[in-house]
Design a protein around this nucleic acid. Structure first.
Lengths: 189, 189
DNA sequence: CGCCGCCTTGATGAGGCTCAACTATTGTGG
DNA sequence: CCACAATAGTTGAGCCTCATCAAGGCGGCG
């Protein structure tokens, strides 16, 4: 379940073939922070220093491919296409993290709307999403408690924007969800 | 004062020679979000698409060097050193944005402590910082109101962690400031 | 001197965290 | 197949932090 832990030495970069991975920090007082979710087709594990800044854990059953940092560097140096992909991916990561930071002032419901839209943009083909993670995971990612996440789901359901059945979510009105954030999030596709 | 505006077409990348630049988004309802500050020696303006996602404004008197994206790409392709610098810078940007997002649950005082520590790590030699930006700027960056920022300054001053005189801030106890964030922020140097 | 922007401080209200109870779902052993 | 336990999700009540509105202070600059 754990691919690597916070503080480990490791230069490997990973590519998610199937499933979902989360990167996590745990404060000394036990408060957990989910720094990111990585879905099938995405990269993670590229860091500045030799020590892992966060742990990486499989959220559901997951297959991941591992590549050493030196091999990646060599590939990027020789193949301009790879270098461009890498740059583009990093820029996207930065954008996403900045978007999340910009949501600091937003309401819990707006944060959840952002989360769902982002998830739809990234992987799910139709309007249905099978969330692999718990409410607590979502909360630790958005900076909310699991109870507040649950309440936000209830509000979106009541307003007819989504339908839920356990962890299965159907986005009934994606445009309305997107509008909730004062279209802070441009089309990231 | 404005280097480029949100929505502009532009591929240029900038390097701050002196002064401070902020990148800004403005929602339709007028709420302002400062996405980042860039101090002397730092880069900004590198984005994924051809359209600017945010405006860039000089906070104080500033000199900035401009470089076209194509020239940067050529440089990075030919010079491994430049490519490495670029990668390292992007990773740092991502880290910083993720740190800020992770502060979502933190108190206003913790956020301000993070801000000051980050600022010290990045540019100021001694323990004194001459803030170039207003309380409102800081608030729009941290997701707080300017009043709350002001109150947080008062608390840190009362607790003997800083001394302030207008926009001049002296960090009396940097270690204590760093500890406030459950040492979420590792040494980023 | 008086205006103006920035900063500070106070009072009030709203949103979200915490504690707590209850329900739903899944898994386990008899 | 059922009883039970364990985990996840939902909903409610009270408190606390921060946003908002409002009123001064403190320079800078004409």
């Amino acid at each position: 379940m754990t691919l690597y832990a916070e503080g480990d030495v490791g230069h490997s970069v990973y590519w998610v073939a199937a499933g979902t991975v989360r990167t996590v920090n745990v404060g000394r007082d036990g408060n957990r922070i989910v720094r990111g979710f990585y879905r099938s087709g995405e990269f993670f594990g590229l860091e500045r220093g030799p020590l892992r800044a966060s742990s990486a854990e499989a959220v559901s059953e997951t297959r991941a491919v591992c590549c050493s940092r030196s091999r990646l560097d060599a590939l990027a140096a020789s193949d301009a296409q790879v270098a461009h992909e890498l740059l583009s991916w990093l820029l996207r990561m930065t954008e996403r993290a900045q978007d999340l930071a910009a949501l600091g002032r937003a309401s819990a419901t707006q944060k959840l709307a952002y989360f769902l839209i982002d998830l739809m943009d990234r992987g799910s083909a139709g309007r249905s999403i099978a969330l692999p993670m718990s409410r607590t995971d979502i909360g630790d990612y958005l900076g909310l408690s699991s109870e507040t996440v649950s309440r936000a789901f209830t509000i979106l359901r009541r307003d007819g924007m989504i339908a839920t059945h356990g962890r299965d979510v159907t986005l009934l009105d994606p445009a309305a969800l997107q509008r909730m954030n004062g279209n802070l999030l441009k089309a990231h596709s």
